[in-house]
């Protein structure tokens, strides 16, 4: 069976083409702002090209991500993000007990039971939204590439700090440090530390976490400095699958293929 999963992220669109539980094509591009549908179609075409398929050879397309309603016309079904993340973890990291999905906009922590069903879900409050975007924006301000941003050293204990209570205040503090000629790398370390604290508030919000096998998914898995700092702060080991960045798209494709545990309960039949 050939299926496609589309993750309409705030920052990036990611697409996975799946055939018989194997990824045969993928695509990624910036979200396209107001022209998301066109951007998604372009990525879709390139992913199909990589898979060597035509559109009519795809049996089902499932969509997830913040911008999922922008591409309703392409979607066979629309699935919410926790369900696709849990499904991806079931596939990529069997036996996962906890999933952290950290992206440009949303940070999500899930506890899974042994059947890979979600038993608890926590999503960031507004004050912890946009962790990924914050890092990207600050990199621009500091004139660092994403790669350079991902390679900064950990924040020194007595090094410069920016507010970790609010990202807007954090940005003001960072600008203040720039005015004081603090080296950009040191500011970047402080910024990443703040991002870690904001993500950590979500993770620590879980009432009954099970950290036996923590799986980290989402776009921020690509920022090595962030991942290292998060690991060290939480004192946890993470499983980071190769497809971590594409996980929600993969989860959608898997659901389209009907793979694994059924995520939904059938509604009871009508009675008079």
């Amino acid at each position: 069976m050939t299926t496609v999963g589309i993750d309409m992220g705030v920052e990036n669109i990611k697409i996975v083409v799946l055939r018989d539980e194997k990824i045969i094509g993928r695509g990624k591009a910036r979200s396209g702002g107001a022209k998301r549908l066109a951007a998604a179609k372009a990525v879709y075409e390139s992913a199909l090209k990589e898979a060597g398929l035509r559109e009519d050879q795809v049996e089902k397309v499932f969509v997830t991500g913040k911008g999922k309603f922008d591409v309703e016309s392409m979607a066979g079904d629309i699935i919410t993000e926790p369900v696709t993340a849990a499904k991806a973890a079931e596939f990529l990291s069997p036996g996962a007990t906890c999933v952290f999905n950290i992206g440009a906009d949303e940070t999500m922590a899930l506890t899974l039971n042994k059947d890979a069903r979600i038993t608890e879900m926590v999503i960031n409050e507004k004050c912890a939204a946009g962790v990924g975007n914050f890092i990207r924006n600050m990199a621009r301000r500091l004139e660092l590439t994403q790669e350079e941003m991902g390679a900064v050293p950990p924040k020194a204990k007595d090094g410069p700090a920016v507010s970790d209570g609010c990202i807007v205040f954090g940005e003001l503090d960072a600008l203040n440090l720039m005015n004081k000629d603090v080296p950009p790398e040191e500011i970047a370390s402080a910024v990443l530390f703040t991002a870690v604290i904001r993500a950590s508030t979500v993770i620590k919000d879980l009432t009954e976490p099970n950290f036996e096998k923590v799986t980290l998914l989402g776009g921020l898995t690509q920022n090595k400095a962030f991942v290292t700092a998060l690991k060290s702060w939480l004192d946890l080991e993470f499983v980071i699958p190769d497809e971590a960045e594409y996980a929600p798209a993969l989860g959608a494709a898997l659901l389209a293929a009907g793979w694994g545990v059924k995520p939904y309960i059938e509604p009871a039949s009508a009675v008079s």
Binding site: K66, T80, P82, A86, M121, Y264
Partner: peptide
């Protein structure tokens, strides 16, 4: 969206 996420995470879909 949060309502959808919450309901779906508990295995419920819209009727």
């Amino acid at each position: 969206e949060q309502l959808d996420q919450w309901m779906e995470s508990q295995g419920l879909r819209k009727l």
